[in-house]
Deep mutational scan, measured.
Amino acid sequence: DEEIEKWIETLLKRNISLRVNGKDLEIGSEEFKEWVEKFIKEV
């Protein structure tokens, strides 16, 4: 979905790490990609 890709790009540009389930996810890491894929499937 384009919306999500733009959102991810924005996050990448800002180099933010997300806190997911109490863990810091490094943007661009494998864990982050897995989380994004799960997130996309749920939406």
Rank of each mutant, 00 (worst) to 15 (best):
G22A: 02
L25S: 03
W7E: 01
E34T: 14
I8R: 03
E9H: 07
E37K: 15
L25V: 08
S17H: 09
R19T: 05
E5I: 14
L18M: 05
E30C: 09
D24W: 12
I40S: 03
E3F: 12
N15Q: 12
E34R: 15
S29F: 09
I27R: 03
V36T: 02
E30P: 13
E31G: 07
L12A: 03
D24S: 08
F39K: 05
K23C: 14
K6S: 10
S29P: 05
E9P: 00
V36Y: 07
E9I: 14
I8P: 00
T10M: 14
K23E: 04
K23F: 09
K41P: 00
I16F: 02
I16H: 02
K23L: 07
I27E: 02
K38W: 14
E9A: 10
E9V: 09
I8A: 03
K6A: 09
L25T: 02
L25R: 03
K41S: 05
E2I: 10
K41F: 06
N21A: 04
T10I: 14
R19L: 08
K33I: 10
D1W: 14
N21C: 15
R19V: 06
E31R: 07
W35S: 00
K13Y: 06
L18D: 00
E37V: 14
I8M: 06
E5P: 07
K41V: 04
K38D: 04
E26L: 11
N21L: 11
L25C: 14
G28M: 09
V36R: 04
K41D: 03
E34W: 14
E42R: 14
W7C: 14
N15G: 15
W7S: 01
L25K: 02
I40Q: 02
L12R: 08
F39V: 05
K38P: 00
R14P: 03
G28D: 07
N15E: 05
D1Y: 13
I4C: 15
V36F: 10
E26I: 12
V20T: 04
F39M: 08
L11Q: 01
E31S: 06
K33M: 11
T10N: 11
K38M: 09
L18H: 01
R19I: 07
R19W: 06
G28R: 04
R19G: 02
K6T: 07
S29I: 07
V20L: 13
E34L: 15
N15H: 14
D1F: 13
V43R: 11
I4V: 07
W7R: 02
V20E: 02
L11R: 00
K6R: 11
D1I: 14
W35A: 04
E5C: 15
V36Q: 01
G22M: 08
L18A: 02
E2Y: 13
E2W: 13
E42V: 10
E26D: 11
E9T: 09
K33V: 06
T10P: 00
E34D: 10
G28H: 03
L11Y: 05
I27Q: 03
N21V: 04
L11K: 01
V43N: 06
L11H: 01
K6G: 05
L18V: 07
I40D: 00
F32K: 00
K33S: 06
T10L: 13
R14I: 12
K41G: 02
E30Y: 10
L11W: 09
R14Y: 13
E31D: 06
E2R: 13
T10D: 08
E30S: 08
E37F: 15
K13M: 12
D24T: 11
R19Y: 06
F32L: 05
L11M: 06
I40N: 01
G28W: 09
W35M: 03
E34P: 02
D24G: 04
L18G: 00
